[in-house]
């Protein structure tokens, strides 16, 4: 019993973030168990059992876990963690919410958002918005680790045949409850796993102008992102934000439109394979990380780009 991975899911589907976390755990070595905690999660458990390299799946099923409330989920993870050396989760908002609560209940100092596994007890993690990389060694009896998914390839979703075991939970703590969710609906790929991302910044000037980027995105099969400035200005919802405190993306192609390139934004996209910057200010810091820069008025360049992609 070496690695316990807390699955990221929506009660019906196992999310790709879990597959990236499996690869991180494999780098540390040892057997892998996936824990699926939620409400009505049998389909998720079946998917988890098929992931290559997974030897066991445990499920904890109950209405009190349906919305991943940290007060209810954390004690379950503490109980499941008994006997494991490492407990892993992808650094999604759900796990970022829950895992430190788990760590403190176990009196463990968590290791957040690792980008590399150096050895079984030593990990790399970015600090200062990715402007420095810390190599940290843990002497904790159990390590609580969250994983930056863009730094690890996904494990194969098929090929495994792990046994699934159902375990009783710890009940409803009775101090928190779910009220409602406002989920952004989109037909486009998910920002953190898209092959191409087209992002807009303050230079877009309005939310309506994001329609221009969406047309380009649709031609490239891309997700649409944004800088903090564009989100703060209300052009697009919060879940579009790429950066130190938003989402971290590392697509094959990242197209930054009207984004100046603050340190905090670069932190969320500078590991992209190819970066394109379109900005009318040739002094904009975004050009320092761009592979291809185009100094131009975006209101001319973006429609031209869309036309060129036909």
């Amino acid at each position: 019993m070496t690695n316990l991975i807390i699955a990221e899911h929506d009660n019906s589907e196992l999310k790709a973030a879990t597959l990236h976390t499996v690869t991180a755990a494999q780098a540390a070595g040892g057997d892998i168990t996936i824990a699926v905690i939620g409400e009505g999660v049998s389909a998720v458990a079946e998917q988890a059992a098929k992931v290559a390299g997974v030897s066991k799946v445990v499920t904890v099923d109950g209405a009190e876990y349906g919305h991943q409330l940290a007060e209810n989920v954390a004690p379950v993870i503490v109980a499941l963690a008994e006997g494991y050396k490492n407990v892993w989760a992808p650094a999604t908002t759900a796990a970022k919410n829950t895992m430190p609560r788990v760590a403190a209940l176990m009196d463990v100092q968590q290791i957040s958002e690792i980008t590399a596994v150096v050895s079984a007890d030593t990990f790399e993690r970015p600090i200062y918005a990715g402007n420095a990389i810390a190599t940290v060694q843990s002497a904790e009896s159990t390590n609580i680790i969250t994983v930056r998914t863009t730094s690890f390839e996904p494990a194969a979703a098929e090929g495994g045949s792990a046994a699934v075991e159902s375990v009783a939970g710890t009940g409803d703590a009775g101090i928190s409850s779910f009220v409602s969710a406002a989920v952004t609906e989109s037909e486009r790929p998910e920002l953190t796993s898209a092959r191409v991302v087209v992002s807009g910044g303050r230079g877009m000037q309005s939310g309506d102008n994001f329609a221009m980027l969406e047309k380009v995105a649709d031609k490239l099969g891309a997700a649409v992102g944004a800088s903090r400035a564009a989100v703060d200005a209300g052009y697009v919802p919060n879940d579009y934000q790429v950066g130190q405190t938003g989402k971290v993306v590392a697509p094959e192609l990242y197209i930054a439109v009207g984004i100046s390139g603050a340190i905090q934004h670069l932190a969320g996209m500078k590991d992209s394979k190819v970066i394109v910057a379109i900005n009318k200010d040739e002094e904009a810091p975004i050009f320092q990380v761009a592979d291809y820069g185009l100094v131009a008025d975006l209101f001319e360049a973006v429609p031209a780009l869309e036309a060129e992609l036909d």
Binding site: P126, V136, Q137, I275, Y292, L294
Partner: peptide, 21 residues
């Protein structure tokens, strides 16, 4: 946690400015 070292992130190779879309 023991911090063994703090290092620079890998730098990106310099890019080019293109003239047109």
């Amino acid at each position: 946690l023991k911090t063994l070292k703090v290092s620079e992130p890998p730098a990106r190779a310099a890019g080019i400015i293109v003239g047109s879309v």
